[in-house]
Amino acid sequence: MIEVHNVHKNFGDTPILRGITCTFETGKCNLVLGGSGTGKSVLLKCIVGLLKPDIGSITFDGTIFTNNKIEIRQEIRKQIGMLFQASALFDSMNVFENVEFPLQMLTPDMSKEERRDRVEFCLKRVGLENAGLKMPSELSGGMKKRVGIARAIAPNCTYLFCDEPNSGLDPLTSIKIDELIYEITHEYGITTVIITHDMNSVVEIGDHIVFLHKGLKLWDGTKDEILNAQVPELKDFIFSSSLVRAAKKVEQEGGTIETSVGEPIQGE
């Protein structure tokens, strides 16, 4: 479990995070939901230690991370995998080398064969067993995300952080990436934190959801609770999708929307 306690962060005089307290549960997909520019990425960077919170602390399974000794921070960092918004693959290395890199750097005792097996296993897990020799510039957006995931999980991470894994992907690819992250999380009992502004992901994979608005946490709960949440900002956010509005309109006019997925949405 990751505990975020009263985290504040300013850039110059502008407060970005204004006292955030929340927890991310072990073995679950924890979603951080919020509009653009609300400080989601800043929160994530504070958690993984790329930024230092002005006030507040982060605890990983009982071990304090913020301001702790460098050795302890290094130990925790070795258990962190991260998928970046633009994938952040090393563009001078091919796919295989990208996934091998953290193993090479973090587990020097591993033999070459063990490393190769692990890389092949991870690439297979994300469905890219034949792409090992491709360079990042030759990959599509969805493939880059897959490589990013493989690289993040290669050293057996305990914590997985994903910054907008769906950004720049078409809806179908988005769902596939979401499902992959969800499966991996539950398969290996990883504590996963996903930043998103996509309601599809919430409904699809949101085991636990934290809603941010203008640097404050306004709500948290499960995906079953979110539709009944009584926070106005969250309601606005959920129902701002034009698809939802269109569906509501159809509903108000007493119509029905047929879909091939699940049951048809019924109007009363």
Binding site: L50, Q74, M82, F84, Q85, A86, A88, L89, D91
Partner: peptide, 12 residues
């Protein structure tokens, strides 16, 4: 492109 951040997160 956040490649430097990626190294830092790995503890490098």
């Amino acid at each position: 492109t956040e490649q430097i951040d990626a190294l830092e997160v790995m503890g490098i």
